[in-house]
Simulated assay, not measured.
Amino acid sequence: MAELKRTPLYEEHKAAKAKLIDFGGWEMPVQYSGVIEEHQAVRKNAGLFDVSHMGEIDVQGKDALSFVQRIITNDASKLEDGKILYSPMCYPDGGIVDDLLVYQHTPEHFLLVVNASNTAKDFSWILEQVDNFQVTVENISDQYAQLALQGPQAEKILQGLTNVDLSALKYYTFCYGEVDDIRCLISRTGYTGEDGFEIYASSQSARQLWRRILEVGSAKGIQPIGLGARDTLRFEARLPLYGNELGENITPLEAGLGIFVKLDKSDFIGRDVLLKQKEQGVPRKLVGLEMIGRGIARSHYPLQKNGEEIGFVTSGSYSPTLDKNIALGLIRTDLAVLGETVDVVIRGKAVQAKIIPSLFYKRS
């Protein structure tokens, strides 16, 4: 069995008595005080996440912009220096390689932030696409630690540690600045449905940053947050997870990410298939589900209508914010009707659920 990788914050998690699990080959904290308590801390106050396992891929060269345009479905030509774009990245058949964030330093220099479990696969795939583009592509994941500070108190907490005017940092933009005298890249992004920041620093600086943010945030109710609450938070806000809502057998259009697929831009990998799918109509659609019967719909449980299989659950859990058992499911488009019922097959038993709007939570 391969040895699990650890982030620079592993000793901090151990000292905090976090419950550690194998997450895509990384030994990561799933919870500290408990998933529901941590979830509510982020919704009400603030939470600090170790996301140092995420992958960072650097793309530089005179063809950097046209290369990035080729490999993503969104339109990077709309970016400006210091701005960020979310995008799927597809195979030629329209299936999803990964979803990622594109940071533009300049039109000749981009940072791609990819999912931890996909970093090696993504890097290999991106390298294969270089062809005649004049670019260099480098996996620089080991150089970075990444912390995510999320929640209504996030700006006030971080402002106490930085010389950057955070009120001027708009959503999906980034800058460089000092946090506790450590040079960092600070972006106003996140994966919880709340306002917040992601802070990139050298691996050597991670423990100092972690401790100081928790120290300064203690008066504002900050808590360290594990992967358990990270999942319930992103799920309530309908933020997709690779391996659940996204995958090589699911297109971005089926996953409800059509807004991030710019079919009118220059050619990109997967465009022909996605254009055809848009013209003919998507065969499957992602829907929200609320359990009527008892039970939790877990990822990959079958979904049925009148005993016939019509799709599967992508994500499901108890929602601490709504106090209900909810799920997302990928089902036949013709059956994706609000208010209609479907059956979730839980351990061989059909349990009824109602189709509801899939954005379960939006911050006010």
Rank of each mutant, 00 (worst) to 15 (best):
R207S: 15
F235A: 09
N249A: 10
G221C: 03
L257S: 01
D195V: 10
T232K: 06
E254I: 09
W210F: 07
G228M: 04
Y242Q: 09
L239N: 01
A219T: 13
L209M: 06
N249E: 14
A237H: 03
N244G: 07
L233H: 12
R234D: 02
E254L: 13
R207Y: 00
L257P: 00
Y242I: 06
S203D: 13
L209C: 05
L239C: 01
A229F: 12
R207Q: 14
E198K: 09
D231L: 12
F260C: 02
I213R: 01
T251A: 08
R211Y: 04
G258E: 11
T251K: 07
Q223S: 12
I222R: 08
W210T: 00
E236A: 13
P252K: 08
L241N: 11
D231H: 14
L214R: 13
P240N: 02
E236S: 12
A206V: 09
F260T: 00
T251L: 05
K262R: 06
N244H: 15
V216L: 12
G196M: 02
Q204M: 14
R234I: 01
Y200H: 14
A229V: 10
G226M: 06
L239A: 01
A219V: 12
T251R: 07
A201D: 09
E245S: 02
I213H: 03
L253F: 06
Q208T: 13
R234V: 02
L246H: 09
Q223G: 00
I225P: 07
R230W: 01
S202P: 05
A237K: 00
S202D: 15
I225V: 15
R212G: 04
D195A: 05
A255K: 05
K220E: 15
Q204T: 14
S202G: 11
S203F: 11
K220V: 00
R238C: 02
V216F: 05
V216R: 13
S202R: 14
L263V: 03
D195Q: 11
T232I: 11
R212Q: 15
L227P: 02
R230T: 00
E198D: 13
Y200F: 15
Q204C: 08
E194T: 09
L233Y: 11
N249I: 10
Q223L: 15
V261S: 09
K220G: 02
G228S: 05
W210K: 04
L241R: 13
E254T: 11
R238Y: 06
P240Q: 00
I225C: 06
G243E: 01
I199W: 09
Y200N: 12
S203E: 15
A206I: 06
G243H: 05
P224Y: 03
D195Y: 04
Q204R: 14
S202I: 06
G193Y: 10
G247A: 11
V216I: 14
L246C: 14
